[in-house]
Computed example of a mutant assay.
Amino acid sequence: MLTNLYLVRHAYSTYSPDELGRPLSQRGFIDAEKIKKLFENEEIDIIISSPYKRAIQTVEGIANFREKVVLLEENFKERTLSIGAVEDFEAAITKVWVEPTFSWSGGESNMDAQKRGVKALKNLLTTCEGKNVVIGTHGNLMTLILNHFDKNYDFNFWKTLDMPDIYKLTFEYQELKEVKRIWNRTENI
Protein backbone atom coordinates (compact mmCIF):
# COMPACT_ATOMS: atom_id res chain seq x y z
CA MET A 1 0.00 0.00 0.00
CA LEU A 2 1.45 3.35 -1.06
CA THR A 3 1.45 6.47 1.09
CA ASN A 4 2.34 9.84 -0.45
CA LEU A 5 3.69 12.59 1.76
CA TYR A 6 4.05 16.02 0.17
CA LEU A 7 6.63 18.07 2.05
CA VAL A 8 5.81 21.72 1.38
CA ARG A 9 8.40 24.29 2.33
CA HIS A 10 6.58 27.50 3.22
CA ALA A 11 6.39 30.43 0.84
CA TYR A 12 8.13 33.78 1.40
CA SER A 13 7.27 35.49 4.65
CA THR A 14 7.48 39.01 5.98
CA TYR A 15 10.55 39.03 8.21
CA SER A 16 9.92 39.32 11.92
CA PRO A 17 11.77 37.95 14.94
CA ASP A 18 8.45 36.30 15.90
CA GLU A 19 9.10 32.83 14.48
CA LEU A 20 5.68 31.50 15.44
CA GLY A 21 3.60 34.42 14.15
CA ARG A 22 5.56 35.53 11.08
CA PRO A 23 3.06 35.75 8.19
CA LEU A 24 3.50 35.25 4.47
CA SER A 25 4.53 38.23 2.39
CA GLN A 26 2.48 39.42 -0.60
CA ARG A 27 4.67 37.24 -2.84
CA GLY A 28 4.15 34.35 -0.41
CA PHE A 29 0.36 34.62 -0.68
CA ILE A 30 0.60 34.64 -4.48
CA ASP A 31 2.71 31.46 -4.37
CA ALA A 32 0.36 29.84 -1.82
CA GLU A 33 -2.48 30.36 -4.29
CA LYS A 34 -0.40 28.66 -7.00
CA ILE A 35 0.25 25.76 -4.64
CA LYS A 36 -3.49 25.43 -3.99
CA LYS A 37 -4.10 25.24 -7.75
CA LEU A 38 -1.31 22.68 -8.14
CA PHE A 39 -3.10 20.40 -5.66
CA GLU A 40 -6.63 20.91 -7.03
CA ASN A 41 -6.29 17.83 -9.24
CA GLU A 42 -4.61 15.69 -6.56
CA GLU A 43 -6.60 13.55 -4.15
CA ILE A 44 -5.50 14.87 -0.76
CA ASP A 45 -6.74 13.16 2.39
CA ILE A 46 -5.02 15.08 5.18
CA ILE A 47 -3.31 18.47 5.55
CA ILE A 48 -0.83 18.87 8.40
CA SER A 49 1.36 21.84 9.22
CA SER A 50 4.02 23.16 11.47
CA PRO A 51 2.39 25.52 13.98
CA TYR A 52 4.28 28.44 12.43
CA LYS A 53 1.91 30.87 10.72
CA ARG A 54 3.86 31.00 7.44
CA ALA A 55 3.68 27.21 7.06
CA ILE A 56 -0.04 27.13 7.87
CA GLN A 57 -0.79 29.95 5.43
CA THR A 58 1.13 28.15 2.69
CA VAL A 59 -1.09 25.03 2.87
CA GLU A 60 -4.42 26.39 4.13
CA GLY A 61 -5.66 27.11 0.60
CA ILE A 62 -5.43 23.37 -0.10
CA ALA A 63 -7.38 22.68 3.09
CA ASN A 64 -10.06 25.23 2.19
CA PHE A 65 -10.41 23.82 -1.32
CA ARG A 66 -10.71 20.27 0.07
CA GLU A 67 -12.96 21.44 2.95
CA LYS A 68 -10.53 20.05 5.50
CA VAL A 69 -8.93 21.39 8.64
CA VAL A 70 -5.18 22.01 8.84
CA LEU A 71 -3.94 19.76 11.65
CA LEU A 72 -0.98 21.18 13.55
CA GLU A 73 2.08 19.08 14.31
CA GLU A 74 4.68 20.67 16.56
CA ASN A 75 7.39 18.30 15.31
CA PHE A 76 7.24 19.73 11.78
CA LYS A 77 8.30 23.19 13.01
CA GLU A 78 11.62 24.58 11.84
CA ARG A 79 14.74 23.59 13.67
CA THR A 80 15.77 25.99 16.39
CA LEU A 81 19.23 27.22 15.45
CA SER A 82 19.82 29.24 18.62
CA ILE A 83 17.84 30.68 21.50
CA GLY A 84 18.66 34.18 20.28
CA ALA A 85 19.79 35.86 17.10
CA VAL A 86 23.12 34.69 15.70
CA GLU A 87 25.73 37.17 14.54
CA ASP A 88 26.56 35.38 11.30
CA PHE A 89 23.71 33.16 10.12
CA GLU A 90 25.73 31.58 7.28
CA ALA A 91 28.56 30.58 9.64
CA ALA A 92 26.10 29.33 12.28
CA ILE A 93 24.08 27.16 9.89
CA THR A 94 27.24 25.84 8.20
CA LYS A 95 28.65 24.71 11.55
CA VAL A 96 25.60 22.62 12.48
CA TRP A 97 25.72 20.91 9.08
CA VAL A 98 29.46 20.24 9.32
CA GLU A 99 29.09 18.97 12.90
CA PRO A 100 25.69 17.20 13.09
CA THR A 101 25.82 16.73 16.88
CA PHE A 102 26.75 20.37 17.58
CA SER A 103 24.12 22.82 18.79
CA TRP A 104 24.28 26.52 19.52
CA SER A 105 23.04 27.80 22.88
CA GLY A 106 19.38 26.81 23.23
CA GLY A 107 19.33 25.39 19.71
CA GLU A 108 18.95 21.95 18.19
CA SER A 109 21.71 19.96 16.58
CA ASN A 110 21.05 18.55 13.12
CA MET A 111 20.74 15.11 14.70
CA ASP A 112 18.16 16.25 17.25
CA ALA A 113 16.04 18.15 14.72
CA GLN A 114 16.27 15.25 12.27
CA LYS A 115 15.15 12.72 14.91
CA ARG A 116 12.17 14.93 15.76
CA GLY A 117 11.10 15.36 12.13
CA VAL A 118 11.64 11.72 11.15
CA LYS A 119 9.71 10.51 14.19
CA ALA A 120 6.72 12.68 13.16
CA LEU A 121 6.98 11.48 9.57
CA LYS A 122 7.14 7.80 10.58
CA ASN A 123 4.15 8.30 12.85
CA LEU A 124 2.23 9.56 9.82
CA LEU A 125 3.27 6.51 7.83
CA THR A 126 1.61 4.39 10.50
CA THR A 127 -1.50 6.47 11.14
CA CYS A 128 -2.09 7.60 7.54
CA GLU A 129 -1.12 4.48 5.62
CA GLY A 130 -2.43 4.53 2.06
CA LYS A 131 -3.30 8.24 2.22
CA ASN A 132 -2.06 11.37 0.46
CA VAL A 133 -0.85 13.85 3.05
CA VAL A 134 0.29 17.45 2.57
CA ILE A 135 2.76 18.65 5.23
CA GLY A 136 3.51 22.35 5.62
CA THR A 137 7.03 22.64 6.98
CA HIS A 138 10.35 24.46 6.68
CA GLY A 139 13.46 24.18 4.53
CA ASN A 140 16.01 23.05 7.08
CA LEU A 141 13.77 20.45 8.69
CA MET A 142 12.57 19.22 5.29
CA THR A 143 16.19 18.72 4.20
CA LEU A 144 17.06 16.93 7.43
CA ILE A 145 14.11 14.55 6.96
CA LEU A 146 15.14 13.84 3.36
CA ASN A 147 18.76 13.42 4.51
CA HIS A 148 17.69 10.64 6.87
CA PHE A 149 16.70 8.57 3.82
CA ASP A 150 19.37 9.75 1.38
CA LYS A 151 22.59 11.57 2.34
CA ASN A 152 22.58 13.41 -1.01
CA TYR A 153 20.00 15.73 0.57
CA ASP A 154 22.58 17.80 2.40
CA PHE A 155 23.58 21.38 3.16
CA ASN A 156 24.26 22.11 -0.51
CA PHE A 157 20.82 20.75 -1.42
CA TRP A 158 19.23 22.96 1.26
CA LYS A 159 20.87 26.02 -0.29
CA THR A 160 19.20 25.24 -3.64
CA LEU A 161 15.65 24.95 -2.29
CA ASP A 162 13.04 27.37 -3.52
CA MET A 163 10.65 29.18 -1.24
CA PRO A 164 8.14 27.59 -1.54
CA ASP A 165 9.28 24.14 -2.62
CA ILE A 166 7.49 20.79 -2.72
CA TYR A 167 8.80 17.24 -2.64
CA LYS A 168 6.57 14.18 -2.93
CA LEU A 169 7.79 11.18 -0.96
CA THR A 170 6.18 7.86 -1.89
CA PHE A 171 6.40 5.08 0.67
CA GLU A 172 5.39 1.46 0.55
CA TYR A 173 4.63 0.86 4.21
CA GLN A 174 7.75 2.33 5.92
CA GLU A 175 10.08 2.03 2.93
CA LEU A 176 10.79 5.11 0.82
CA LYS A 177 10.28 4.21 -2.84
CA GLU A 178 10.56 7.56 -4.62
CA VAL A 179 11.26 11.24 -4.09
CA LYS A 180 10.00 13.63 -6.72
CA ARG A 181 10.15 17.41 -6.82
CA ILE A 182 6.78 18.75 -7.90
CA TRP A 183 7.40 22.49 -7.63
CA ASN A 184 9.78 24.56 -9.69
CA ARG A 185 9.49 28.27 -9.11
CA THR A 186 10.49 29.19 -12.67
CA GLU A 187 7.80 26.87 -14.08
CA ASN A 188 5.15 28.00 -11.59
CA ILE A 189 5.52 31.78 -11.92
Rank of each mutant, 00 (worst) to 15 (best):
I56P: 02
W97Y: 15
H10T: 07
G139C: 11
N184D: 11
I47H: 03
W158D: 05
I30D: 13
E19T: 09
K115C: 00
E19F: 03
R185L: 13
Y167R: 07
Y173R: 11
E187D: 14
K168G: 01
I35V: 13
F155R: 10
R79E: 00
R9K: 13
E172I: 06
T160I: 04
E178G: 00
T137R: 10
T160A: 12
L146Y: 01
F29E: 13
P164M: 02
Q174V: 10
W158R: 01
V179M: 15
R79S: 11
E78P: 07
N64F: 12
V134P: 04
L7Y: 08
T170A: 07
R9S: 03
M142E: 01
S13F: 11
V133Y: 08
V70G: 05
K115R: 15
Y173L: 08
T186K: 14
G130I: 08
D162M: 02
N132L: 04
K168M: 15
L5M: 14
T80C: 14
F155K: 09
D31R: 10
I93W: 03
F102L: 11
A32P: 08
S16G: 04
K122H: 05
I46D: 07
L121M: 09
G130W: 11
L141M: 14
L141T: 15
S16K: 08
E187N: 13
V8C: 05
T80H: 04
K131T: 02
I182F: 05
R185D: 11
Q26D: 14
V8A: 00
N123F: 12
C128H: 14
F39C: 08
E43R: 10
G21I: 01
I46H: 09
I83M: 10
W183H: 04
I83L: 06
S109V: 04
D45I: 03
F171R: 11
N152P: 00
I145L: 09
K77Y: 08
G130A: 05
F39R: 07
R181Q: 14
P23N: 06
E33N: 15
E67F: 02
Q57W: 07
E78Y: 09
I166Y: 03
I30N: 11
G106W: 03
K53M: 13
R27I: 12
W183M: 10
R185Q: 15
R116M: 12
N132C: 06
R116G: 12
E178V: 03
D112A: 14
L2S: 06
E40M: 15
T143E: 04
A91S: 14
T143G: 04
E40T: 13
L20A: 11
L169P: 00
H138G: 10
S49T: 09
S13W: 05
D88H: 05
M1V: 15
F39S: 07
M142F: 01
I46V: 15
L20S: 05
R181V: 09
N184W: 00
I44F: 09
L141P: 10
N147K: 03
N41H: 10
E43C: 00
F65D: 13
K37R: 12
